[in-house]
Amino acid sequence: MPKVKFDILESTCVPLPFENVDTDQIIPARFLSATSRLGFGDNLFRDWRYTKTGEKNSEFILNNPDYSGQVLVAGKNFGSGSSREHAVWAIFDYGFRAVVSSFFADIFTNNALNNGLLPIVISDDLLKKLHNLVQKDPGTKVKIDLMNQTFTILMTGDSVKFGINPYKKECLLKGLDDIDFLLSMKSLITSYEKTKSL
């Protein structure tokens, strides 16, 4: 797993205001045959981004030149379905560093945090407000401050605290890696095995 640091991010947003966007939409199964983590961004939201004949779908937000940025503003229940980490790799590879929603699927949250992609949960109301703002003005910027756990809409000054597991926060701030951490506990693990006589 890669070591990624996250600290402060200020960026414009890309809005995707649909509910229940599942991992099959984020990266369809037919693109999962690769054996490395790279390059999945090309096929992010593939079947929405391209028409059946393979041309760019001009109506899809990623093909709209007005919108860009490192923050994906999604709808409720984002990332449900399959456990494929490829979904997170695709979002990250495309250039996003945070996803904002009012609700994430569990496995998606874990996968995102394990790859330095910050999933930020805000209230339904604030999410709606943000979507409206971004829709009206693609220049709408947000600021994410991980240390202070604050999410701010810069134009309006709306600022909220977001939750994150303190352990994961520390890992992201310092660019630490779970496996290094677990490996340092190897003797504890072996003695656990002995007590269980596994």
Partner: peptide, 13 residues
Amino acid sequence: GIGTSEVEMVLAT
């Protein structure tokens, strides 16, 4: 179910 980073975690530890 787990993600690939976690698969690596379990293989390793």
